[in-house]
Structure formats: C-alpha cells, structure tokens
Design a protein around this nucleic acid. Structure first.
Lengths: 139, 139
DNA sequence: GTAGCTGCAAACTCTTTGCAACTCT
DNA sequence: AGAGTTGCAAAGAGTTTGCAGCTAC
C-alpha cells in the first residue's frame, strides 16, 4: 500500500506536458484510497476546477492507463473504475457497502503460476475478485 | 464440463413460455462450447431464424441470467459474454487467440475461502481470470 | 381468451472524437 | 511559435424500453 513515488512524480518523468487539468486529476488519484469511476473523478475535479470537462477526464485517465500509471477495472459495474495502486494485489468487494478491500497473498501467486503452467501457458496477467459479506459475530 | 441436464430442460422446469425464439437461443447456448457475446448469439440465431430480433436476444439472455441458467461475464471486452456452464470454474484467456479455457482447482477454492475468512468476510462469489500466452517448447 | 412475448424504432448510458480555441514549454 | 491539450457538442457502441401486434398455453 505504500508507494515509493506518487503518481505526480511518476507522470512528470514521462516528459509529457503538465497542464492545470492534468495536475488536478493526478492529485485526485494520488489522494484517492478508493477505486473511483470516471464520474467520481470528474465530480471531485469540478470541486477544484469547475470548468474541467468530462472529455478531459476520460482522455487523461486513458492516457495514464496507457502509461501504466493506473489500472482500469470493472467490478461488475456498468462503468470503468480506476486503481491507483500499481503494486500487484487483488480485491474483495463488500457486497453490502460496495467497499473494495485490497489484499495480497503469496500462496495465491504461487498457485496461479502453477495452474497456468499445468495448462501449458505462460502467465501474463490475472485477476482475482472475491465478493463477500462482512461476518457479524453477534447476529 | 458434463452437465446432468441441458439448458432446455432446466428452462422448461421453470414453467415459462417456450417460444420459437427462445428455443432457438437456448439451443445455441446448449451447443456453444465458447462464451458467446450477444452479437454472436444473435448471428447464430439468425441462421436458424432470420426474423429474430436483437432485442429478443438481449431479453432472453437477461431472462436466463436472472434464472441463474447462464452467467454474464466480461473478459475485459467492451461487451457482455455468456457462460452456459453453471458449474463453478475459472478461466484462462489466451491473449493471442482470445480463446477462453475453463478450469477448476480445489486448492484454489480452499485458499480463497481462507483469504475471505481472514479478512472477516463470508464469501458469496468470486472470480479468477488468468491471462496467458501458450508456451512453445521450441521457440 | 389472455398473459406474456416479439419486432421495431426510439431512447438511454457510457465513452470517444472532430474541431476551433487555447496553453504549456 | 508550435505541438499538444482543452471544452464543446456531436457521434459511436452497447443495451434497454414503449408500444402495437402476435402466439403459446
């Protein structure tokens, strides 16, 4: 969960232009601990810069995704959501609150490599999502 | 991969009306070994019944999904794809050919339960997708 | 006979794009 | 100055829906 560098400095290294709009969006992503949708990023961006357009949010998020600075996800929603954390991890989605919890598991990493190997494949990427309900020890 | 009953007989048990269009779509799904998209089902359906409409395909697939006879999936495509196999399994997506390979793994089932439990959750559903490239022993 | 299904076309949601104006470097 | 970025509005893809006619039961 602790990243060496924030998104802004990683972006700056690319040499691409830094505009007011991009700075706004990158700041929002840097501060986001959730996995915001385009609309959410847009809403937050408007609080900082009311004149920003949705098209710019779409374009900037696509750009950052192509640069592998963020990752596009779909948690069975009808819209895309973005993940700022590029470290490899998985998600547990709380089906009651919609909260997304990140986790890592070494055993799983080993197992999935083994499964792919057994099927005759080199693993390039993968995803695991768990959908659950919070255990209540009382009720 | 072997199902006790086919989709058609499971559908008939529901008591819902069986129309020509539904029979066509259900037959296509019963015979599909891939994970067809709405457009694919539509294209195949037209070969049997050229007058069938896309809206009916959408409606029928939604209906079958609500009845838990098929499962809607999204393999990072921009459109929905359907899975006829309701047995619990996972997918390995061949990133070169786009082929989708189904697999099961008991070790994985146990592990994912453990992960959810450790996070304080009861597991309701989950999905694992592996994205890989076929190993070539020669090249 | 009638509840429910169908085809058609229009509408809707999410995302992308053409273009003229603007802004970082 | 100039390449790249922006806002706007229009267009695009995928999906849903209202409605009048039709069909399985």
């Amino acid at each position: 969960m602790t990243e060496t560098e924030n998104l802004e400095s990683r972006y700056l290294k690319s040499g691409l232009k830094m505009t007011g709009q991009r700075r706004t969006i990158i700041k929002i992503l840097d501060e986001a601990s959730d996995h915001p949708s385009v609309e959410t990023v847009y809403a937050r961006a408007r609080q900082i810069d009311p004149s920003i357009s949705l098209a710019t949010v779409y374009r900037t998020l696509s750009l950052l995704e192509e640069m592998d600075l963020i990752i596009k996800r779909d948690f069975n929603d009808s819209y895309a959501r973005y993940d700022t954390n590029i470290d490899h991890h998985h998600h547990l989605i709380d089906m009651e609150s919609g909260a997304v919890i990140e986790f890592k598991n070494e055993e799983l990493e080993a197992l999935k490599l083994k499964i792919a190997r057994d099927l005759g494949y080199d693993l390039l990427d993968h995803r695991l999502e768990l959908y659950g309900r919070k255990k209540s020890s009382s009720s």
